[in-house]
Write a protein that binds this DNA or RNA. Structure first.
Lengths: 239, 239
DNA sequence: TATAACTAGTTGTCTATACCAGTCAGAAAA
DNA sequence: TTTTCTGACTGGTATAGACAACTAGTTATA
């Protein structure tokens, strides 16, 4: 259950164990979980370690504490879904599609004024330009161009083809923090209509996303052209 | 500085002290703050107490930790802007436009199957249908159709014309909690192109929003058609 | 000169313990 | 029977210390 020799921190293992019980429905909303002292005894760890695990779950909204009473499973929150800063892959999976990508081009270019500003780097600095077609069940869904400052991490074509960009980012020790997006309706241009296999003049959804790391540095600028006939952008917002 | 006799927890006092330095600009973005051991010594508390204070500030986005290096002041927080569940009026104001509305029609209709489902009411129940043109600096920006269950609150044409729908909702003692939205690109149909003063076939952004109250009841279903050439939907998301 | 080992500093994890502050049920007192 | 108190539970705060993992600069070594 809990492996004291594992390189994973004990509190993290406990955290995952509790999270699983909740997500598997074993502990439903309102269930009072074991007390901190009970956990400590069962897992043979100190109470403070249990508290660290529970703290994280409280912060993530899985649990709520009540002094003198106990710790309870929260109502399943929209917030998990909320504000989903998701990748194309996650997004499509959650819709029940099989996501895939086709790399169109991968090259290193010099930042023009607009890119330099968006990525907060000096002009003419090197950046990667990644062009991909995004597929859902083998049907073209979007044409995506990603710009990443080359100084931030070293990328090769194989990284893009085999893994996701975001896993490379995490390998490099960075963490994604937030993004600002803009969405607008437009009309497919020649090149886009061909790649997306739609007629010229068909409606498309243009999405531009700027992603930031926890240290405040911009990670990427992504320009996407989604097929208007196949893609709906879904979002939940809380007051 | 820190009052050990105060009923306020020590970690909370330390938390506030650090937060103040950041908010007053004394510690700017990127500043490395004192190490946990230094704080502990200065304040004459244990390191774990300092950690609790810093933990909270990290969770709130004020600080970021880097193992082996130190703890640093984060880039400006964006959470306030985040999560904007805003009305058209607020949205336009924040962009520097002068918002206005023109009421096209106001009537009571019976819920068809789709509306009944979206508003979680029995079929054929009465609902208000409000059609409005939304203007920014007197230029048509969107054509909006709102559906509200009549049982929820009593509405008159004057309410819509003079005040906002949301203020009526609050007067009735309800509180808006969250909304789910979908956005997609499309093409202006005849009626829409006329009202929005654009050519037929011009790109438009279709936004459908379902708003829920704190008690979980749906308040409204809003279907909007925004001009693709004038409107960009902006959103910030946090990981 | 280049490389490896060391060192002092940082945050990260974990322990064992203590006492405080609410909650609630059952025992004792009215 | 009703009220009050007590005790055993809950999470909340705080301590002092230990060692691990990582960073960056310095020193010793090949």
């Amino acid at each position: 259950m809990i492996d004291k020799k594992s390189p994973m921190p004990l509190y993290f293992q406990i955290e995952e164990a509790i999270k699983q019980k909740i997500e598997k429905g074993e502990w439903i909303t309102g269930t009072m979980i074991s007390s901190e002292r009970e956990f400590a005894e069962n897992y043979e760890v100190s109470r403070m370690t249990v508290r660290q695990a529970i703290n994280n779950l409280v912060n993530d909204g899985y649990l709520t504490r009540q002094k003198g009473k106990g710790t309870f499973v929260s109502a399943k929150k929209i917030e998990q879904k909320l504000l989903g800063l998701t990748s194309f892959t996650e997004d499509m999976r959650s819709r029940g599609y099989r996501p895939a990508s086709k790399l169109i081009s991968f090259q290193t270019i010099s930042a023009n004024q607009r890119l330099a500003k968006a990525l907060e780097i000096p002009e003419n600095q090197k950046i990667y330009e990644i062009k991909r077609v995004r597929l859902a069940n083998d049907i073209p869904m979007a044409f995506e161009t990603t710009f990443v400052p080359a100084q931030l991490l070293y990328l090769q074509e194989s990284h893009i083809k085999e893994g996701s960009l975001y896993s490379e980012v995490e390998n490099a020790g960075f963490k994604i923090d937030y993004a600002t997006q803009s969405l607008e309706a437009s009309i497919a241009r020649d090149a886009e209509s061909e790649i997306l296999e739609i007629t010229k003049g068909a409606p498309v959804l243009l999405i531009e996303r700027q992603t930031f790391l926890t240290n405040g540095m911009p990670l990427e600028l992504v320009h996407s052209v989604y097929r208007g006939d196949r893609y709906k952008f879904m979002i939940d917002m809380k007051r």
